[in-house]
């Protein structure tokens, strides 16, 4: 829209239409930018829990996947097995580490740090095991996706209106 009277917009033809419209951006240039937070999906059927040779990675009774750092061998099989790239080796302890879903907070009735600080409330923590938790209404009423559903990991991190290009 050319500068001028904002109440009376006119369609602009660059260079009066000579040379047509400007070239479109090449396909490999990002045409849209958005932020997708990636965290441990705390899968119900975790490949990382399955492959850990000593059970240092385990699922807590409340369904959170955790790592016992005093037990981890640092073999990195779980890093290979996680389809989401959520695990890494802590160079200080030489053991594996990842998002704990702020287990130290949520077991005291608090929400996770990321949900706590999110200024727009885009992140929310729900209790999937509690049938009266409002998260169930949200999952029913919205279009929600999980990452890499073909991996059948039973991911418990849901994204509303996720773009199809996200992996």
């Amino acid at each position: 829209m050319p500068e001028g009277d904002v109440d009376r917009p006119v369609v602009d033809s660059p260079d009066g239409g000579y040379g047509g419209f400007p070239e479109r951006q090449p396909a490999d240039d990002p045409s849209k930018n958005f932020f997708v937070p990636k965290l441990c999906n705390h899968c119900a059927h975790s490949p990382c829990v399955q492959v850990c040779p000593v059970g240092a990675t385990f699922e807590s009774p409340d369904g959170v996947v955790l790592v016992d750092k005093d037990y981890c061998l640092g073999c990195r099989y779980c890093v290979q097995a996680c389809p989401y790239g959520c695990r890494f080796i802590d160079p200080r302890s030489q053991t594996v580490d990842k998002c704990t879903l702020c287990y130290h907070r949520i077991t005291r009735g608090l929400t996770t740090a990321c949900c706590e600080v999110c200024p727009t409330g885009a992140r929310a923590l729900g209790d999937l095991k509690n049938p009266s938790d409002p998260i169930h209404d949200f999952l029913r009423d919205h279009k929600v996706h999980v990452l890499k559903p073909q991996m059948a990991t039973g991911s418990k991190v849901y994204y509303a209106d996720l773009d199809g290009s996200v992996r």
């Binding site: 000593v54 981890c72 061998l73 073999c75 053991t95």
Partner: peptide, 16 residues
């Protein structure tokens, strides 16, 4: 290769 080779015997004691 292990980050903690001294713990590898855990595979015998408490195999997953």
């Amino acid at each position: 290769h292990l980050g903690h080779p001294e713990r590898s015997f855990e595979m015998y004691l408490t195999p997953h």
